[in-house]
Nucleic acid binder design. Structure first.
Length: 973
RNA sequence: CGGCCCGUAGCUCAGCUGGUUAGAGCGGGGCUCUUAUAAAGCUCAGGUCGUGGGUUCAAGUCCCACCGGGCCGACCA
């Protein structure tokens, strides 16, 4: 019976992975891994909830690979690592999907269709692809508890969110405000930043009018202030002009008129001019000018020049036209000035009736009409067409307007300092995000626009009295007299009223909240905190580790942090790993419209999950983009796994041949061959490196260290140790390689969970005791006693000398197969055992060292003089190689007996006969028969094969051995 | 327009806290070893380390500017 189950000659990783997956399921490995740690110290992970209303893609595999590897690592360190899944279920993307399927085009149509049914469809749609998500998550080996996954639409989840909003309201941080937001006049809703981020929202080179307008001074109508705008339709709403107090302005004379503008913007003037005066903007403040249109009612402070800090001289005239309701800066300035802001344009994007001249006109169509009107009245100084980037509604392609609306806000600016402080305590990978993308974001923090005038979302729990306007933020269902069995969504919740102290009726405001708030609430809402699981929440907040892609910086990373800081004055996570984006082979972003999206299943089918995972860990450092294609993954990662697999296959083959007994105590390490000691030292060194890297959440460095070890084990160690695997009986080489591979399987378990487990099972199969899975094992421990930096250094030098010797042979035209008498190594002292390794490797009888002299660098010289004996040995090795080739071609496995017939010239025949025993043992030959050159092959032999050995011709005939051998590996010597 | 990242051999990328002749893989040319065999190793490419400054005894590695590519943002949370 073989020691190990023989491995198939060629491994198909996707197949192997499916088998491992099935076994995990049968043997409940994931469940066991949790059970065995149920009393251990937790390592807390938060799953950022994806929305399951779209198919998962390759970038999700990337994110999930990074999530998984650190969780597996921590679990192998002995921590309890629960991984509760979750689903993000609310929000506009879900609504849009349903709108599309129902062919609805506007809010009005949704309301006509019926909000109840609409929301019912949203709820169904969001789980549409949940099976697909679960299947992919399982297939890539990401262990996640999806059975108990939280969902943001669950009543308990919503109740926790309400509780948190009540907390925020009590602190005075939830308020209603009048703010400008990008607004689609066709869909009649403001858009979230998320929607503005949709491809195609911002369009470059959008043509728009650029008009420069005269604002005549009341005191001196011959003098005008020049202001520039790209939105003439906002001019009827003009309330003020803004200047920079410190900016230098000039008054110029041009023909009959005088014009005022910033000194730095003189090039907007057409034709000759003469500068009459120069003064800072502060001197302009307070000047009154003639209003362009008579539609807005009189106000004392309107139509005057004001100072503002947003004025620049980058473009325009340095004097900024300010229309209260159609610009963020405009609105703020008007509010500061105490001006009453009134809309001139309705929610449908058309001028209101009181703007008589343009009433009913859509604003963009009104632009040329307004320009013409101004021109007629001599107020248009200049008109041009400019190209700039402008936002459009990504659904209906309507140009967006900046439009002031009532909204609910969270005063995040009140906790800005705390946000910055807690962010500073987070370990970001890559580290630059902390102060870069995230830090900058927090520095320029604005209040959170929380409300959405939409349907499918967590209802904003604010009730307002219809009589006295008193406002109440509700923090639980009980406050409404409701139980847990309700559906707190629209439209049901809108029918719930409260009695006000004044005797009036309180009704809920119509808005739902930004779904990003939902996901940021998961640390407490997933546990229905504070209504339940108080201890559990406290134990598991903040998380030790989270990981999502870069686009979550302003998304989930921010909302988690903001909510935790506002509610608990804590960060939500201690460490974040942020993988960059996946792009196509040519570095382009993947998008459906471009047709370059890679199907994750196709990729998995070609390369397997482990190769893909390994590729993600090793190919670039975290933070750089991944240029992916099946070919790229196969070229590096798949190849690496193949080499590793071959190494294992080598061990299995020869251990079975030798009937090596792995349960036998191997020789003490100090008594083993220097190569064994060396590879074990490298192993110990690698364990150190890998653990240090993983403790820093650096998978890239860890995997590179492992790759280097695998490379050295599979090439140098195996190459030099091959004779010992074929001839020795002490088992030290087997024990060493077995140990190395077993530890590699444990080192790699977090990264390539399938291959690692398959290796582990094979390697432990002959051992006593239960070895169900590498994922139930502990991670390799550091072992300082095995470290041997000197030996590692010496071996590196030895390898360099071997390469040098091979180069010398090549230059001299003497193949390595030809033994030489001696090599002379200068400049270094080598131990006898290292000299033996080198001698074998470069095929010389002996290595002689000349003690280190003055030079630092060692070198090697070869004695190329060939004695007849050496020549004979060279011929013999050539013959052995050809016989081995023939064995391979004949389909003979190592160890299977065979008979050889040799016909050759006398010199070769003599070499064969002198080395007959070596030939027989090396090539597993029962009989070696020499034959005269032109005689026919004996009966039972196939036609001979003619080969050339060192220029000498030979005919070889080989047939499988007839007599079964007595068992036991055929040994040399 | 702003922020961040990247710009190292034909291609894909390593190069930690600045220090001897700047590395790997792939492709291509040459060779070697070998029943781990549709495996492996060696060798060749003579790379202005994007450009120009600066700091330093010393810079691919730190600072500044610029050029090129990518991502994000662009009044929004």
């Amino acid at each position: 019976m073989p020691v190990f189950e023989p491995l198939p000659a060629h491994v198909r990783f996707p197949e192997l992975e499916e088998n491992v997956l099935a076994r995990w399921g049968r043997e409940r490995i994931f469940e066991r891994s949790l059970e065995q740690r149920k009393d251990a110290r937790p390592f807390v992970f938060y799953e950022g909830p994806p929305t399951a209303n779209g198919l998962p893609g390759v970038h999700h595999i990337l994110a999930r690979s990074f999530k998984d590897c650190f969780l597996r690592y921590q679990q192998m360190l002995g921590r309890r690592v629960e991984r509760r899944g979750g689903w993000d279920t609310h929000g506009l993307p879900v609504e849009l999907e349903v709108e599309r399927s129902l062919k609805l085009r506007s809010k009005q149509e949704i309301e006509e269709f019926g909000v109840e049914e609409f929301n019912r469809l949203c709820r169904a749609s969001v789980m549409e692809y949940i099976d697909e998500w679960e299947r992919l998550t399982g297939r890539i080996g990401f262990w996640l508890d999806m059975e108990h996954a939280y969902r943001t639409y669950d009543p308990s989840y919503i109740e926790s969110v309400w509780w948190s909003l009540q907390q925020i309201h009590q602190r005075g941080w939830l308020y209603r405000g009048y703010r400008v937001a990008p607004y689609c006049p066709r869909c009649q809703t403001s858009l979230s930043s998320h929607e503005l981020g949709q491809p195609g929202a911002y369009r470059d080179n959008t043509p728009d009018p650029g008009v420069t307008v005269r604002f005549r001074l009341i005191e001196d109508p011959g003098t005008s202030l020049l202001a520039w705008t790209t939105t003439p339709w906002t001019l009827p709403g003009n309330l003020a002009l803004a200047v920079g107090a410190e900016i230098p302005y000039v008054r110029v004379r041009q023909g009959d008129e005088r014009l005022i503008l910033a000194r730095g913007r003189l090039d907007v003037l057409d034709g000759a001019y003469e500068i009459e005066a120069e003064f800072p903007g502060s001197e302009l403040v307070g000047l009154s000018y003639q209003r362009l249109f008579p539609y807005l009612s009189e106000q004392d402070r309107a139509w005057k020049v004001a100072a503002a800090d947003f004025v620049s001289t980058e473009e325009g005239t340095g004097i900024v036209h300010t229309a209260g309701a159609y610009g963020e800066d405009d609105l703020r300035l008007c509010q500061e000035l105490g001006l009453e802001v009134r809309h001139t344009v309705g929610l449908d994007g058309r001028f209101l009736p009181f703007v008589e001249e343009f009433a009913g006109l859509f604003v963009k169509s009104a632009d040329p009409v307004i320009s013409d009107d101004l021109r007629r009245r001599g107020l248009l100084y200049r008109e041009e067409t400019i190209l700039h980037t402008y936002p459009f509604c990504w659904r209906c392609e309507t140009p967006l307007l900046y439009y002031a609306l009532d909204s609910w806000f969270i005063r995040t600016t009140a906790v800005k300092e705390a946000l910055l402080r807690h962010n500073a305590s987070v370990g970001w990978v890559p580290s630059h995000i902390r102060d870069g993308r995230m830090g900058n974001w927090l520095e320029s923090l604005q209040d959170w626009n929380l409300s959405r005038a939409r349907y499918w979302g967590t209802p904003l729990p604010v009730w307002v009295c219809q009589s006295c306007q008193q406002e109440r933020c509700v923090g639980s269902f009980a406050e409404l007299g409701l139980g847990q069995d309700i559906d707190p969504h629209k439209p049901f919740i809108d029918g719930v009223t409260l009695a006000c102290e004044c005797g009036g009726v309180m009704r809920r405001v119509p808005e739902v909240i930004d779904c990003w708030y939902d996901s940021g609430a998961m640390p407490f809402a997933q546990w229905h905190y504070p209504f339940e699981n108080q201890e559990r929440f406290q134990e598991e907040h903040p998380a030790d580790y989270i990981s999502e892609a870069l686009d979550q910086t302003r998304g989930w990373f921010y909302t988690l942090l903001a909510e935790s800081v506002m509610l608990f004055d804590q960060p939500a996570y201690r460490n974040v790993v942020v993988p960059s984006l996946v792009v196509d082979d040519k570095g382009r972003k993947m998008s459906k419209s471009r047709g370059n999206v890679i199907d994750p299943w196709e990729l998995l089918g070609e390369t397997g999950a482990d190769a893909l995972r390994w590729w993600f860990y090793t190919t670039v450092t975290v933070g750089q983009e991944y240029r992916i294609s099946a070919q790229r993954v196969a070229e590096s990662a798949l190849k690496f796994l193949n080499v590793l697999w071959n190494t294992q296959s080598f061990l299995v083959t020869y251990a079975n041949l030798a009937k090596w007994d792995p349960s036998q105590t191997p020789p003490d390490v100090s008594a083993r061959h220097v190569l064994d000691r060396w590879i074990l030292a490298r192993l110990a060194q690698t364990v150190d490196e890998v653990r240090l890297s993983l403790d820093r959440f650096d998978a890239h460095s860890a995997c590179r260290a492992i790759a280097e070890l695998v490379d050295e084990a599979s090439t140098w160690y195996l190459r030099c140790s091959r004779p010992r695997f074929r001839g020795t009986t002490d088992g030290a080489a087997f024990a060493t390689l077995h140990q190395v591979l077993l530890d590699i399987s444990r080192l790699m378990a977090p990264f390539t969970p399938f291959v690692a487990d398959a290796m582990y099972r094979e390697l432990t199969s002959p051992l006593p005791g239960s070895h169900l899975s590498v994922h139930l094992e502990m991670y390799p421990e550091p072992d300082p006693s095995r470290l041997d930096p000197e030996l590692v250094r010496d071996m590196a030098e030895l390898r360099r000398l071997a390469e040098e010797a091979r180069a010398l042979r090549e230059a001299a035209g003497v193949p390595t197969r030809q033994p030489l008498a001696r090599a002379l190594v200068e400049g270094v002292d080598m131990s006898a055992e290292l000299r033996a390794v080198l001698a074998q490797e470069i095929n010389v009888g002996e290595v002689v060292c000349q003690p280190a002299t003055e030079r630092g660098r060692s070198s090697v010289r070869l004695d190329f003089e060939l004695t007849p004996e050496l020549r004979q040995e060279g011929l013999l090795r050539g013959l052995v190689r050809q016989v081995q080739n023939l064995r391979k071609r004949s389909g003979l496995n190592p160890g299977e007996p065979a008979d050889l017939v040799l016909a050759s010239d006398p010199e070769l025949e003599e070499a064969a006969s002198a080395g007959r025993e070596l030939l027989r043992s090396q090539c597993f030959l029962d009989t070696v028969l020499t034959l005269a050159w032109d005689l026919p092959m004996p009966a039972g032999f196939p036609a001979p094969v003619e080969v050339a050995i060192q220029g000498k011709r030979a005919r070889l005939g080989l047939r499988p051995g007839i007599e079964p051998r007595g068992g036991g590996v055929h040994q040399t010597g």
